[in-house]
Computed example of a mutant assay.
Amino acid sequence: YENNSDNWLQSPSIDCTEYTDVKLSFQRWLAVERSQGQQWDWARVLVNGNIVWESPSGANLIDASWTFQEFDISAYADNNPSVVVRFELHSDVSLSFGGWTIDDFKFTGIGPPTATDVAGAGAVPGTMRLFANTPNPFNPTTAIRFSLAAAGEIDLAVYDIAGRRLKTLAAGAFPAGDHRVEWTGVDDTGHPAASGIYFYRLTGATGAAETKIRKMLLVR
């Protein structure tokens, strides 16, 4: 990362209405200089503007491999229709490290009972899968696959790192099975998107219980 800069990566808004005991988890590969009481560099994770984690003050933090992190964010996310996660990195005027790398970002929580839960039928609840786009990185077109265990309403869209919705890729009723769409690197108005990191989010009819998010890199 550059010296004397403030960098951030922000998720799209995630609907957690009717969900409790919500937890945030992800894999990180982070390298940042010690904060020295927030005088030098620091990394933070915020949920709706609230700090849930920050890098240590007294020592540099340099991951040697992927590191799993999980946080209880129920105080900010439970029954909240709009939850936004933000990764921040502040740097001073000297020394540069690798910064944030994030993967396997997800929310988990306890949702309302389904019809299967109430009936006690013991059937396997429906699942929804969102696969890694190919190729990745890409220029200008990439393919995105998703699968549905049962027919239903879905919404698949591309977001930028500020959480702005750029492009709707699929929306409406889809049958069960595998599906494939392409993003050609343009927004809903047809304007080309700039090089950078983007997220694609798949949401099912049940909202937060069936929301999958992955990231991709457009390189022009």
Rank of each mutant, 00 (worst) to 15 (best):
N50E: 11
Y200F: 07
G190N: 12
L148T: 00
P175N: 05
N79D: 12
L169G: 13
T67H: 06
Q69F: 04
V84N: 01
V45H: 14
A121I: 14
N80F: 14
R220H: 10
T17W: 00
G172M: 02
T127K: 07
F199R: 10
A149G: 12
V93K: 02
L218W: 01
S11Q: 05
D103R: 06
P12L: 04
R220P: 04
V83L: 02
S5N: 00
V118Q: 04
R220T: 13
S13E: 15
P175V: 14
N3D: 11
G152Q: 00
D41F: 03
T189Y: 11
A193Y: 03
A170C: 02
V45A: 08
S147A: 15
F26T: 04
S25A: 15
W100S: 10
L46E: 09
P113N: 10
E2A: 08
T114P: 02
P81F: 12
G163W: 13
F131T: 06
Y19I: 02
M128D: 14
I102E: 13
G204Y: 07
A115C: 05
K215F: 08
G58V: 12
V22F: 02
N48R: 11
F87R: 03
A132D: 05
T134H: 03
V47Q: 12
E33C: 00
D117I: 08
V158I: 13
R164D: 09
D160M: 14
P192F: 12
L61C: 11
G190P: 07
E70I: 12
F68N: 03
D188K: 11
L95W: 10
S74V: 00
D21E: 09
A77D: 03
R44M: 06
H90Y: 11
V93Y: 10
Q27A: 02
R34K: 15
F97I: 12
E153F: 07
N79Q: 13
N4G: 10
R214F: 11
Q10I: 14
W66Q: 15
F138S: 12
H179Y: 14
R34G: 04
E210K: 06
Y200S: 04
N3S: 12
R214N: 09
G204I: 08
P112G: 02
T142G: 06
N139D: 09
P125A: 01
T184A: 02
D104M: 14
S65W: 07
S11R: 05
A194I: 05
A59F: 13
S13M: 13
Y76K: 06
G58I: 08
N7Y: 13
P192M: 15
I73E: 10
R44A: 11
N136D: 15
F138W: 14
D78F: 00
F138K: 03
E70W: 07
A162M: 08
F107G: 02
V32M: 07
D41W: 08
K167I: 01
N7D: 08
L202H: 05
S11Y: 09
D188I: 15
S13W: 11
Q69L: 03
Y159T: 01
A132M: 04
N48Q: 04
I102H: 15
A115H: 01
Y198E: 01
D63R: 08
G190V: 09
F71W: 03
A171Q: 05
A205K: 00
D72H: 02
G152A: 09
G185H: 10
F87G: 11
F97M: 03
A123Y: 00
N60D: 09
P175Y: 06
S25Y: 15
